[in-house]
Design a protein around this nucleic acid. Structure first.
Lengths: 225, 225
DNA sequence: CAAGCCAGTAACTAAACAGTTACTTTGTGG
DNA sequence: CCACAAAGTAACTGTTTAGTTACTGGCTTG
């Protein structure tokens, strides 16, 4: 009890939980910088994000930001990597082996839609990264190895549906994935200009539910025989 | 000949074409600032765009930029307005009255795709504007009056197709428009991250043509009875 | 032809910005 | 219990940035 293990987290030398009193907590500091940076970059893009604003949001000293992440660009890359890891991890958890081909495709389409809906910061970071022509994504060896889990699941479902005579023979899995993703991404990422121009609030609940059904409908219609 | 009309453009007091020698040409100056700003904002977003860079690209003195447009924000708004006017003008020129419903829908889908393909700066500006939740678009009375011409043409084609028993009864014209736009927008605006992750260059010609066919296929499949 | 306005220039300014320096505090292993 | 490393702070620095000032030169109209 008198001598706590070295490097142990969650307890200080008195054996009390450290989370409360901890004045010094590297992991927590790192995590709060990353969370603050995710918000700031998502809201303002790479060019508009302010290092001082991130430090303030995180409630830390700016020096710490440079201590943990090097500079603004490396911090941005860390944010981007974490965002991709988030969706890839969620994709892994989906289990479709019990489902019929059509149900499985519908499930994947809804998963993608709901993930986008619940993670607007991911969409925003994608937009920023594409504005810069994937400059940081291309640098990241970590992310290039992190393939989408969805493609494999999609190919499997297509194969099963084809065998049953439900789906067309010549469906490209990438095209199918892009179709589902496009319908969700565009609706959400462009909701502000679209709502303004069409005078119809796309973020309202009935509209969101309607669009989810629409995505499933379009996706299935495009592959059925 | 000795007295040129007031405000006449294109000629100086000697009756010579002014375009060549003109040291002073307000319209040309204004236009070149706007063109330079369009590029700069499209490449770097609102936060990343630099007023000095715009002035340099336009080959003018920075003072002129403030003279003609007030400040950075108003210049950005002018760029955005011009971009929207561009697509709305192009939409107006489409004539579909001679076409069968299916052909007409296909034509509109291809028009949207090709317009996006040929005007990457428009996509980029849309992305930036949505990052800021349509902050400037909402301010612009000019743009709020500028409704999409496509919606009317789309409703007409849907009606004709429905009457012939080709299309489903309950197709929402807005959903149809969003579907066509989403498929084109996402493919192009996210081409850099997608190409990196899937290891397949989406900008290659065969891929672009394949995607155009795909858009037409998906759009029609989604509305057919 | 002169008066005045409008297009245009160069150099400046105050604030914002990313990144650094020099220092203090805290925890822990020998 | 001390020495050292890592966590943390405050104040600073050089540069970049949007926007301005004070000025020049040319065109048009009365």
């Amino acid at each position: 009890m008198e001598k706590p293990q070295a490097g142990a987290r969650g307890r200080n030398r008195n054996g009390e939980r450290a989370e409360r009193s901890a004045q010094r907590d590297p992991e927590r500091t790192r995590a709060s910088i990353l969370a603050a940076a995710t918000q700031e970059f998502a809201e303002n893009g790479m060019g508009g994000a302010r290092v001082d604003a991130i430090a303030e949001r995180a409630g830390i000293n700016k020096r710490m930001l440079y201590h943990y992440f090097g500079d603004k660009e490396q911090l941005y890359l860390a944010v981007l990597e974490e965002a991709y890891i988030g969706i890839r991890t969620a994709e892994k958890a989906i289990n479709l082996s019990d489902l019929e081909p059509e149900e499985g495709i519908a499930e994947l389409a809804m998963f993608t839609w709901r993930y986008f809906l619940e993670h607007p910061e991911f969409l925003s970071l994608l937009g920023t990264e594409n504005l810069h022509r994937a400059r940081w994504l291309r640098q990241s060896t970590r992310l290039k190895e992190l393939h989408s889990q969805l493609m494999g699941k999609l190919s499997d479902l297509l194969e099963r549906g084809r065998a049953k005579g439900l789906f067309r023979e010549d469906v490209d899995p990438l095209h199918l994935y892009l179709t589902m993703a496009a319908l969700g991404y565009f609706y959400l990422s462009n909701q502000y200009t679209l709502s303004t121009i069409f005078g119809r609030d796309l973020a309202e609940h009935p509209n969101l539910e309607g669009w989810e059904r629409h995505i499933v409908h379009v996706t299935l219609a495009s592959i059925r025989r």
